[in-house]
């Protein structure tokens, strides 16, 4: 199969869906000629024109609100938010308006929009350009949240997101834009709420999202050399969450670590770990561990930044302890 970058995969998904549905349009900063700072959208304005690839001023709450209104009245906007950190600027439009409209209208109004943004530290971009804020939006009923872990997922999830009748937030890992993966030429969609078992194993389940899937896979390799068979699962969407696949795995392995690049506290990892505790309690041989980014703003200095994100070695070390029964009485 051909291999393309995550950036190309997103670009293809957008182009295909924009050809298919004339009500779709892209709106955001420097999305047209510049094709975004990460060049993900290069070529789209040439094909679809400036009416459907719309450059905005630096006015995030404004263009987010405009997208909500357009979505409520029959368009399918794809909002480009240059950095995930800017979610804080658009929270009202996203969470008070987009997320609640369908419910508040008694199911009569829809807000079919996609918010494309990114996550991920270790790019030396400091505290306001490095955050992984998926937990914030996943907390709000009415929003769906997709977290692609490779080019393949990025394309299939984007296409599903665009056809979904709800507001969907997609977090791409900005460090992965140039990573290649096999992506079929023929059309495919990845349904929401279907986890992907990346690697099978019987000893421990590593549940990882987005940027952390690679980390978990590397940890599984380290562990395999030591005779520990780790199962690696990528939920692909955290809302909706494929609980069943996660539970089945944990019932089999009896141990789990949940890894996500958001902050450790009050995060995605806590939510998933707690569901496993609630629904697979009798199958567990050890507490379910959470591994997130440290509870600190992302520091600029490389000497500090690299300490804040879970590494394959950290994951392997924790897995080893869980499998050896060492953390059962841990506080």
């Amino acid at each position: 199969m051909r291999e393309i970058t995550l950036s190309q995969a997103v670009n293809e998904a957008l182009a295909e869906e924009m050809r298919r549905d004339p009500t779709t349009f892209i709106i955001g900063e420097d999305v047209a000629e510049a094709g975004t700072p990460f060049k993900v959208l290069s070529g789209l304005v040439e094909e679809f024109g400036t009416d459907r690839v719309i450059d905005t001023p630096i006015a995030e709450p404004g263009f987010m609100g405009i997208a909500v209104g357009a979505a409520m009245t029959g368009a399918r906007p794809i909002v480009d938010l240059m950095f995930g950190d800017f979610i804080f600027l658009i929270m009202d439009q996203l969470c008070n308006q987009a997320a609640k409209t369908h419910y508040m209208s008694g199911g009569k109004l829809n807000v079919p929009l996609v918010l494309r943004t990114n996550l991920g530290a270790t790019r030396r971009s400091a505290a306001q350009h490095s955050q992984s804020l998926q937990a914030l939006v996943a907390h709000i009923p009415g929003l769906k949240v997709a977290m692609p872990s490779s080019a393949y997922e990025a394309k299939g999830l984007m296409k599903t997101a665009i056809r979904d009748n709800n507001p969907v937030v997609i977090f791409e890992d900005k460090l992965m834009y140039q990573d290649k993966a096999p992506v079929p030429e023929q059309e495919y969609l990845i349904p929401f709420g279907q986890a992907n078992i990346k690697r099978e194993g019987r000893d421990i389940t590593l549940i990882a999202t987005s940027s952390m899937v690679q980390v978990a896979e590397k940890a599984a390799e380290i562990l395999a050399n030591e005779g520990i068979e780790a199962e690696v699962i990528d939920p692909r969407t955290i809302v909706p969450l494929d609980e069943q696949t996660l539970l089945e795995s944990v019932r089999k392995t009896s141990r789990a670590i949940v890894i996500d690049e958001g902050h450790q506290s009050y995060g995605v990892t806590a939510e998933i770990a707690s569901r496993l505790n609630e629904k697979a309690f009798y199958h567990l041989d050890a507490p379910v561990l959470r591994m997130g980014a440290m509870d600190v703003p992302v520091p600029f200095s490389p000497a500090l930044e690299d300490l804040t994100v879970p590494t394959p070695e950290d994951v392997a070390a924790n897995a080893r302890k869980l499998c050896a029964g060492e953390m059962i009485h841990a506080a």
């Binding site: 030396r124 400091a126 505290a127 350009h129 600029f300 200095s301 000497a303 500090l304």
Partner: peptide
């Protein structure tokens, strides 16, 4: 990103 920087390396150019 050095310790003797104005923000002890925590901020960098943009902060």
């Amino acid at each position: 990103g050095k310790a003797e920087g104005y923000c002890r390396g925590k901020g960098g150019s943009m902060h």
